[in-house]
Amino acid sequence: MPSEFELIARHFVRPVGPRTRLGVGDDCAILAPEPGQELLVSTDMLVCGTHFLADDDPAGLGWKTAAVNLSDIAAMGGTPRWITLALALPTIDEAWVAALADGFAACCARYDVDWVGGDTTRGPLTLSATVFGEAPRGTAIRRDGAGAGDDIWISGRPGLAALGLAQRLGQLELAADWRATCLQALARPEPRVQLGLALRGVATAMQDVSDGLAGDLGHILARSGCGAQLDEASLPLGPALAACDSAACARRALLQGGDDYELVFTAPASARARLDALAGELALPLHRIGRCVEERGLWLVQHDGAQAPLTPRGFDHFGAEADTGGAAPA
């Protein structure tokens, strides 16, 4: 069995670019941020049985561990630059570790991110990454900039990852021609880095959808001091509905499911043409799903025009959902 340091040397030492003066090997990495940039930092932890299942593919798990962290940088309109990985292992299965490391490195390479360090120890299977990004001074997109009259947008096909998880847990049987798509959305999310960069100076507030659209939009509303109305007719339910063949199931997956790592953002009505064009430029659907209002709260405007209150709550690690024993959003 390899030692901790042999394990690191074999699998965690990867090439770095010129913006990293020193990577793995010393007590610290040495990074070289660009002049005029502000540093963005985020940490996410993935715990076996809470965020992923014990039999998950290790390469996919490595990819996802990197991706969910890069998504936090994307959610602020930043460019991800560096990442570290801390890994707790109950035992060493070197083939499993090698696949995990390869998946993590593949995601880093895809988004031109240097893997510059981390740690390993014995313990319950846990992965914790810290990502560092850059944004020109004053351009990072925060959660506190939304205002009454702003449109609310969501990217991609939210809800598919939640359906993939339900399939993994045996809670439903997805349509055969959508099953692989939903499982891929769950296992290998794509952080919306290019979208985040393109939304600098356009979006007034933004965050990624990790714990459910309603809950994560609720964070924007709380920080911005406003409310929102979502249009039931504008929700992008088509893919989720095709996958599960139930309107209630599709709406629940979209609004509460999480694990999508799409971006929910607000923007002035004057930006609609620009955002419609941007969707084509990025080959990424962008859906206008509602508007911000002065009165605090979150409502769903139904097809008949009636308003129903929505609880802006997603997954809570210490709430009732945390006691289900299933995997949950990171």
Rank of each mutant, 00 (worst) to 15 (best):
G218F: 00
R272T: 10
I220G: 08
C292L: 07
P236A: 08
R223W: 04
A247F: 07
C292M: 09
G238L: 09
D211K: 12
H303L: 12
A214S: 11
H303W: 10
F315G: 01
C292A: 06
D211S: 13
R274G: 08
A269E: 09
E232A: 14
E294H: 12
D259G: 04
L298H: 05
A273L: 11
L300A: 01
C244I: 07
Y261A: 00
A242R: 15
L221F: 00
G257P: 03
A308P: 04
E294N: 09
E232K: 10
A279S: 15
G227C: 03
L230K: 09
D208G: 09
S224W: 01
P312C: 01
R288P: 07
L278K: 10
L310P: 05
S270F: 01
A253R: 08
L310C: 05
L221E: 00
A279L: 04
H303I: 10
E262I: 02
C244R: 02
G227A: 07
V301F: 01
A247N: 03
L286H: 06
A233I: 04
D216G: 11
R288S: 13
R296N: 12
G305T: 07
A228E: 00
A320Y: 07
L217C: 03
G238R: 10
R272H: 06
D211A: 14
A253Y: 05
D259H: 14
G290V: 01
C226N: 04
Q207S: 14
E294A: 15
Q256C: 14
Y261G: 00
L255K: 13
L278M: 03
E232I: 02
R251D: 04
A269Y: 06
D260A: 14
V293F: 03
R252Q: 15
L310T: 04
R251T: 12
G227P: 07
E262Y: 11
L300H: 02
E281H: 12
D208L: 09
L254M: 11
M206Q: 05
H317D: 03
L237F: 02
R274V: 08
R272L: 05
A269P: 09
R223I: 02
A253E: 07
H219F: 06
E281I: 06
Q302F: 08
A320E: 15
A248E: 15
G212L: 09
L298T: 05
R288E: 11
D259E: 08
E262R: 05
A308L: 13
A269Q: 12
H287P: 11
F315D: 00
C249A: 15
V301P: 02
F265V: 06
L298R: 11
H287T: 10
A269M: 11
Q307L: 14
A240F: 01
G215I: 07
I220A: 03
